[in-house]
Each structure stands twice: as structure tokens, then as C-alpha cells.
Design a binder for these strands. Structure first.
Lengths: 201, 201
DNA sequence: CAGTCATGTTACCAGCGTAAACATTATGTC
DNA sequence: GACATAATGTTTACGCTGGTAACATGACTG
């Protein structure tokens, strides 16, 4: 690694045995593909195929399929965080900030259903069999949401009350997102605004 | 079908080419197995193996794997409904009924994580790619919950307000269940009682 | 007893994740 | 520039999966 002069091997259309930045390309193709169907239908072989590379080439950059999914979750977390920042920036200070973030939360879930599920199930990644190692972290964007909720609803109340409020706020938006994703509740944008109301936390 | 004299073929321990009631046995084995790991790790072949039968025998009773899962969901729905009835029976009338049902909801999810996910994702069963046919039905137990919420919170308010309250109540318990299942929130029984509070709908 | 049909079986297929062995290219040193 | 080495990609192979087709068994019905 003398300097990152981007060894992308753009020699017109030569054979290109080496890809250039296969790792990033795989994450990108994975994110493209996961929006087109359920997460368990996303195959390592298909991602590799779309990147124009053999299936086993993936293993030069990720120890296994789960690691590639982890990397995709990390990128998804960054994008959700960006959506949160945008939502907060365009909201008046105060309780409206929660409504804006909560609505962004649900909209992100509806826009990227499988990725959202993957990200939320990530801590255990099992995702079920064993209790997860450290509860409640789940990514930078999630921390951002929880912190915002705390700063909005946690002023001057005992810690247990603050925790209960934080959980209610999070459970409210998360539950609405999941019910809409699973089709138990119609994914009507107007419903999002009605349900995610800061005055009711 | 002259009479259901239960052709269970209990001829001591003979070869038993015919099982007796394979359909019910497969559902039972499926429910047993799904509690031991993530739903996507539940294989048709393993269910058949545990029932002591060849994999293709399943296809005599279910057109495909999804149909077997559907049947398991139906049985799960019945058991969740029973849990709801028990919770309501042991609660004082009034708002406490919602708390009892909501807590039963979360406890059922924690007791049967994979089955609960399967049941909730069932309407679309895709579960993601296409919006589901009829939104909001999702099983008899779910109807029971929604009806109870409506009768508790829907008295003398405009229909839109009633709908918003119903959604908030459902989203609250469902979100808490999912966050606990995914390990984003510790599965602490005390937290369930604190969060699922009827006074805050 | 013979026929029929539901219910089981074995044989086979394509797709999956992944490990091992091999091929190719990029990189650092003389 | 020549060469050793590390990085990266390919081929092959294995066991698992859901699913289809053809065959075997045996329990009812006449």
C-alpha cells in the first residue's frame, strides 16, 4: 500500500482478472439486490454474479456470508443516520423533532424493507436462538434516535420514568414500521403522521 | 371417510408403512423444532426426519413447505388466542384488560420467537416483496386483540381517533416484542409491565 | 378375491454456502 | 528489469436444501 492510487485497472476492456475494489462493489450489489426481495432470498452467489465475479471470490473479502451482510448493515446504518439528520434539520426544535425522526424511521423501513429487517435483527444476527451479547446498541443511527428521545423526554424526571418513555417511543415507531412491513397495517403515509405523535409519549 | 375411527395403526411396533395422522404429527414436530432456532433454519426435511418419515411424504399432506408453515401458524394463532383469553379472564375489567393482553402478547413472542415472527409475517408470507392482499386481518387472535383495544379505547370518540389509538396500542406492544426478540432491548419481564401501560394510549 | 386410491418410498434435479487446490496479477526488493 | 511473495480470483467438489417424477405399499370397497 504505497498510496491509494485506486488500482481499478481501467485498461479499456481487458480481461480484468482483478476487479479493483471488489469489496465495495459487493456491498453495493448486495444493497441493490436486497431491495428486490426478502432477505433470505439474497444469495451470496447472486451478489457475486451481479458483480461479475465467481462465487468464491467473495471469500477473499469476507470470511462468510454473514460478514458480507454485516458490512451491508453498516452501510445501511450510515444511510439511516443521514435520514435522521435530514429529518431533524427540517423540523422545528422541540417535540416536533421526535415526530420527524420517528416518521423518517418508518419511511426508511418501508423504503428498504429487507435491509431494515436485517439491520434490526443484526445484534444477535442469529437472529433468535441466543440472547445477544450487548443489548441496546444496535448501530450508530439507533443510538442517535435513542439519544434524541432521551434529550426530549428525559428532562427532570426520574431515570426509570425516562427509560420507560424512551422504550415507549422506540417501540411505537418500531412496531408501526414492522406492522406495515408485514402487511398487518396498510402502509399509508397519513397513518404514519397520525400514529407518531410526540404528545403521546 | 365412513367414520373417523382413528386409523392410527397401533399394531404394536410393526413396520407401520402408514403413519396414522402424519399431517398433525408434522405440524407438531414443526412447532417443536421452530422453537429451537431461527425460522429460516427450519427445513422441511428435518421436520420429516423428526416425524420418522421421508421428506417427500410431506407433499401428500401439504402442497409445499409454505403450506406446512401456514398450518403451523394456524395452530400458533389458536394458542395465542388461548393466552389472550386467559389473560383477560384474570384481569379486572376496564383498562387493566389491555395491559394484561399486551403483556401476554409480548410474553408469547418471547416464549416462541420464531413462531411469532412467522405468524406476524404470514399475511404476505412473501413476506416482503408485494403488499399483502387484505391488510389487518392476520389471524383470529390478532382480531381479538384489535377488537378489545377498540372496545376499550373507542367509546365516544370520532372514528379516526379510534383508529389512531388502536394503531398506537398495537404498535406499542408489537414494537416492544420485536425489539426484545431482536435483542435491541433486554427481555426483562419488569420492562414489559412498565411499557405496556393502558393509561398512555 | 380383485381393484382402486391414498399414502408412503427412492431417484433425481437445480441452487445454495463454503472449503481446498490452482491460476493470475500486483507489489516490494535486489 | 528480474524475481519472490502476497493478494486476489477461478475451478472443482461436498453436503445441504426445496421440489418433481416414478414406483411401492397397504387399507378400504366392490
Amino acid at each position: 500500500m504505497t498510496g491509494n492510487d485506486n488500482t481499478v485497472n481501467m485498461s479499456s476492456e481487458k480481461s480484468r482478472y482483478h476487479h479493483g475494489d471488489l469489496r465495495a462493489a459487493l456491498i453495493e450489489e448486495g444493497l441493490k439486490l436486497i431491495d428486490t426481495g426478502p432477505a433470505d432470498a439474497l444469495s451470496l452467489r447472486e451478489i457475486a454474479r451481479n458483480a461479475g465475479v465467481s462465487a468464491t471470490a467473495v471469500y477473499r473479502h469476507f470470511p462468510d456470508k454473514a460478514a458480507l451482510l454485516d458490512a451491508m448493515c453498516l452501510e445501511g446504518d450510515a444511510r439511516l443516520g443521514a435520514a435522521f439528520k435530514a429529518a431533524m434539520a427540517s423540523a422545528e426544535p422541540g417535540l416536533a423533532a421526535f415526530s420527524a425522526m420517528g416518521q423518517a424511521y418508518v419511511r426508511f423501513a418501508l423504503a428498504h424493507p429487507s435491509l431494515f429487517r436485517l439491520m434490526m435483527a443484526a445484534p444477535g444476527r442469529g437472529p433468535l436462538p441466543v440472547p445477544p451479547p450487548s443489548a441496546g446498541d444496535g448501530g450508530a443511527a439507533m443510538q442517535m434516535l435513542v439519544n434524541t428521545i432521551d434529550s426530549l423526554f428525559g428532562a427532570g424526571v426520574p431515570a426509570p420514568v425516562q427509560e420507560a418513555r424512551r422504550l415507549r417511543a422506540w417501540a411505537l415507531v418500531h412496531g408501526l414500521a414492522m406492522l406495515m412491513l408485514d402487511g398487518q397495517v396498510p402502509a399509508d403515509p397519513a397513518l404514519i403522521d397520525v400514529v407518531v405523535d410526540a404528545r403521546l409519549i
